[in-house]
Simulated scan of single mutants.
Amino acid sequence: MKKITMPLLMLKQRKYTILWVLWVVAVVVLSLVEGKEMPQAPRIPYLDKVVHFGFYFGYTVLFVLAFWKETKIIPNVKKCYVWAFVSAILIGATMEILQGALTVTRSADPVDMVFNTFGTVVALLFMTRYKELFR
């Protein structure tokens, strides 16, 4: 019984870190997959901007929960917010550049970067206001 519960306990103790890693992988894969390989989304105006917002909102919330709350790699919450912001901007910019350079059916779009940043800023405001929900 002890052999089974130890790995489960470790997974539970690192749930936000695991979710953050999975989120990053999903954002990278979904950002770089060719458009023709994606299922056809409903024609909702600006849906891709909402998705960009959501990707980076989730990235930022999970970053703070993983690196400040769970692992305490960044023990100061304000520094964690700065690192979350900087890393989200760098990943977002990198994904946009790679979309333009590596894919045929996608292009780098500066407006996507605006929505990535907006998602990150809203997530940080949310975490600042509601971080007690995650204690």
Rank of each mutant, 00 (worst) to 15 (best):
V27Y: 05
T94A: 13
V28W: 05
K131L: 00
V27N: 04
V61R: 04
F134H: 09
A84N: 06
M1G: 13
V111K: 10
G119Q: 00
F118C: 04
A84H: 01
R106G: 04
K3M: 14
H52E: 03
V51K: 02
W20E: 04
Y46I: 11
L65D: 01
V114M: 12
T60V: 10
V61D: 02
M127I: 03
L19E: 07
Q13Y: 10
L133H: 11
V51I: 13
T17D: 01
K12G: 14
V25Q: 11
V64T: 02
F63V: 00
A26I: 08
I44M: 05
E34I: 06
F55G: 05
N76V: 11
Y130G: 00
G54I: 15
D48Q: 08
G100F: 02
I89G: 06
A84K: 00
I89A: 11
P45T: 05
K79S: 14
K72R: 15
V29I: 15
M1N: 09
W68T: 02
I4M: 14
Q99K: 09
Q40H: 14
V121I: 09
A101W: 04
D109Q: 04
T103Y: 04
I91P: 01
S107Q: 13
L8Q: 06
V82I: 15
T71Q: 08
E34L: 08
G54N: 12
T117W: 11
A26G: 13
E70A: 07
K79F: 13
L65G: 05
L47A: 13
L32H: 12
M95Q: 03
P39H: 13
T71R: 15
F55R: 05
G119W: 00
L65Y: 02
K131G: 01
K69G: 04
Y81D: 00
K131P: 00
T5P: 05
Y81M: 01
Q40L: 14
T103M: 05
V33W: 15
T117G: 06
W20R: 03
V25S: 14
T128V: 12
L102T: 12
Y56T: 03
L62Q: 02
L124I: 10
S87R: 07
R135F: 11
V104R: 12
